[in-house]
């Protein structure tokens, strides 16, 4: 019985002493932090995806508070609503950006782009792209090892087993830009989501001459320039045998889509018209 009492007493005293030490140490080494850092971090999505260019949401908040402004600091995941909140905390203005989404600029499905050899190394786009031009005759397009899928922190990307191409889940994509960085072929692009998700883009970046590009892939942009001619808004430029649609100028008239001889231009989320081909609105 005696020993029990002693045990209790010793432990209690020990606990008290240690608690005292702990609290003293905590006070002695207390780091004074601007409360706005916590506030901003709380306002941010907390995904720590690095899409803003900082190591995480905390680093973003820290940098923003230190600088006292939001120049060049934008959270693509939270978008304008979150950035307004952050701006309010800091008492500054933020730039208004249209919501964006990642798009896959490659039509090179197994059906469109015949395979001419079999890659047998590590399943990594980075390794494969550094090794050689790829397993098709198109040296520009997607190499299909899924580095973008691995890079996506939001589960918005997946490889379609039938086409071999990555597919973006618009609902989940936050436009953080990780896939754009991960893709060694620069196939991924961040584009404005468009009103009601409507958007038109050239799903090809093949810079080979038309005949070569077409031989490599049935749905390649052959740089014929028909789309640029038909476009009434000067949104389309053809450079290095490949067309590009400027999403800030495009008015979604879809004339180019109808004009494209290879079907390289995709119009997404438009209501299905009876005469439209099914394939052009997938993805």
């Amino acid at each position: 019985m005696n020993s029990l009492i002693w045990t209790v007493i010793i432990l209690t005293v020990l606990g008290c002493i240690l608690a005292l030490v702990l609290s003293l140490v905590a006070r002695r080494f207390h780091v004074v932090e601007d409360p706005r850092i916590d506030a901003i971090e709380k306002a941010l999505p907390g995904a720590n995806c690095g899409g803003c260019g900082f190591a995480g949401c905390r680093a973003f908040s820290d940098a923003a508070v230190k600088a006292g402004n939001l120049d060049g600091r934008y959270c693509p995941v939270g978008g304008t609503p979150v950035m307004r909140e952050v701006a309010a905390i800091l008492g500054v203005q933020t730039e208004e950006k249209a919501p964006q989404v990642a798009v896959v600029r490659c039509n090179g499905s197994f059906a469109n782009r015949p395979r001419v050899n079999d890659y047998d190394g590590l399943k990594s786009c980075k390794v494969k792209a550094a090794l050689y031009a790829g397993d098709t005759h198109c040296p520009f397009g997607c190499v299909g090892c899924g580095d973008c899928v691995a890079a996506c922190a939001f589960g918005a990307l997946s490889l379609n087993a039938e086409t071999g191409l990555p597919v973006v889940d618009e609902q989940k994509c936050t436009a953080c830009g990780k896939c754009v960085q991960a893709c060694p072929k620069h196939v991924m692009e961040l584009r404005n989501k468009g009103p009601r998700g409507l958007r038109v883009f050239v799903s090809c970046i093949n810079k080979d001459k038309g005949a070569v590009a077409r031989k490599a892939c049935a749905a390649a942009c052959i740089g014929c320039g028909k789309c640029a001619k038909v476009c009434a808004h000067e949104a389309i430029t053809v450079q290095d045998n490949v067309a590009y649609i400027d999403f800030t100028k495009c008015r979604l008239c879809k004339k180019c889509v109808a004009e494209c001889p290879t079907g390289a231009i995709h119009a997404v989320n438009f209501p299905v018209l009876p005469k439209k081909e099914e394939e052009k609105k997938d993805e």
């Binding site: 590590l122 390794v127 550094a130």
Partner: peptide, 12 residues
């Protein structure tokens, strides 16, 4: 394990 495949880009 494709050791060199992974090491090569890291080395670069």
């Amino acid at each position: 394990i494709p050791l060199l495949d992974r090491i090569r880009p890291a080395k670069a």
